[in-house]
C-alpha cells in the first residue's frame, strides 16, 4: 500500500506541475517575437526615422505597434506600420471575428494594408503603409471578437512628424530590424530600366514586377501594359512592393504625384 501511495503522490505532483510546465514551455518556444525594439530606439530606413514601439494591454491580449513615432523628411513619404497582436488563448477561439483596424487618421493616408496573418496560434500580424501628409497621427485598434469576455479593444496612437528626431534620439539610430521588413518594402528612386517581356521595372537594386489590374486617380482602370507604359526610364517613382514566391510584386506606385493601386 505504501509503495502505491508513493507512486500516487508522484503522479499527483506531476499532474499539479503540468500547467506550470506547459505554460513555461509555451512562453519559451513561442516562434514569433514581439517587438524587441526599445521604446525609445530609433531605426532609420529609406529616409524615415522609426522610433520605438507602442503597446496596449487593457484586456488579456496585447497589441504591439512599431513604430510609436515616425519622422519623415518631407510630406508624401511612405511609412510602414507593423501591428502584432499576442493572444492569451490559442486561435481560432470561439470569438474569432476580432479585427485590426486603423482609425482617426490625421494628416495621414492609408495607401496599403496586408491581410492579417496568424504567425502562430498565439500571434497575429498585419502591416500598413501610410503616406504622411504632415504632422499628424493615427490610431491602431485591435477589436476583440464579439462577446469575448477577455476585453473589448486595445488602442495605440502612432504619431508622425515632418523633420528629424532630436539629437539624443538620433544617437541611438541602428540598422532596420527584421520587424520593419516582414512583408513589404518601399522603394524610392529613378527608374533604371523597364522590361516589358518580364513585366518589370528596375529601381535601384530592385527588380519589381508589375502584374494585374491597376486603379489610378479618379478610379481610372489600367491593365499591366498600360501601367508599365507610364513607368519610363529616368522618371522618379515610389513603389511599395511585397515579396511573393521569391520575387517583388508592386502593390502601390506613386509617379508624378499620382497614386496607382493594384486591384
Amino acid at each position: 500500500m505504501e509503495r502505491k501511495l508513493v507512486v500516487a503522490f508522484i503522479l499527483c505532483a506531476i499532474l499539479t506541475a503540468l500547467p506550470f510546465a506547459v505554460n513555461y514551455a509555451n512562453d519559451r518556444i513561442s516562434t514569433s517575437s514581439v517587438p524587441s525594439t526599445a521604446s525609445s530606439e530609433v531605426v532609420s530606413s529609406n529616409g524615415v526615422y522609426y522610433i520605438g514601439y507602442a503597446s496596449s494591454h487593457e484586456g488579456d491580449d496585447i497589441l504591439y505597434v512599431v513604430p510609436a513615432e515616425a519622422y519623415v523628411e518631407k510630406p508624401g513619404t511612405l511609412v510602414t506600420i507593423n501591428v502584432t497582436v499576442k493572444f492569451k488563448h490559442a486561435q481560432p477561439c470561439p470569438y474569432s471575428n476580432w479585427k485590426i483596424t486603423i482609425e482617426n487618421p490625421e494628416n495621414v493616408e492609408v495607401v496599403n494594408e496586408t491581410k492579417t496573418v496568424l504567425k502562430d496560434p498565439y500571434t497575429a500580424f498585419k502591416q500598413y503603409t501610410v503616406k504622411v501628409l504632415g504632422n499628424g497621427s493615427v490610431d491602431v485598434v485591435y477589436h476583440y471578437g464579439t462577446g469575448c469576455p477577455y476585453g473589448t479593444e486595445e488602442k495605440v496612437t502612432v504619431k508622425f512628424y515632418i523633420g528629424k528626431p532630436s539629437g539624443s534620439a538620433l544617437n541611438q539610430t541602428s540598422a532596420p530590424p527584421e520587424i520593419l521588413n516582414t512583408t513589404s518594402i518601399n522603394v524610392t528612386g529613378e527608374i533604371k530600366a523597364v522590361d516589358t517581356l518580364a513585366r518589370a521595372v528596375v529601381v535601384g537594386n530592385y527588380t519589381i514586377e508589375i502584374r494585374g489590374r491597376w486603379t489610378g486617380p479618379d478610379n481610372v482602370t489600367l491593365n499591366w501594359r498600360e501601367m508599365l507604359s507610364l513607368l519610363q526610364p529616368g522618371k522618379n517613382v515610389t513603389i511599395l512592393a511585397s515579396e511573393e514566391n521569391g520575387s517583388l510584386k508592386a502593390d502601390v506606385i506613386i509617379i508624378d504625384g499620382k497614386t496607382y493601386r493594384k486591384g
Binding site: K4, L5, F9, L11, A13, I14, L15, T16, L18, P19
Partner: peptide
C-alpha cells in the same frame, strides 16, 4: 481553473489509491 483543476486531478489519484 486551470491550475487548481490539475491539482484536483492530481490529488484525485491519491484519493483513489487511498480508497482502492
Amino acid at each position: 481553473h486551470e491550475y487548481f483543476g490539475f491539482a484536483f486531478f492530481g490529488l484525485s489519484v491519491v484519493h483513489v489509491t487511498l480508497n482502492w
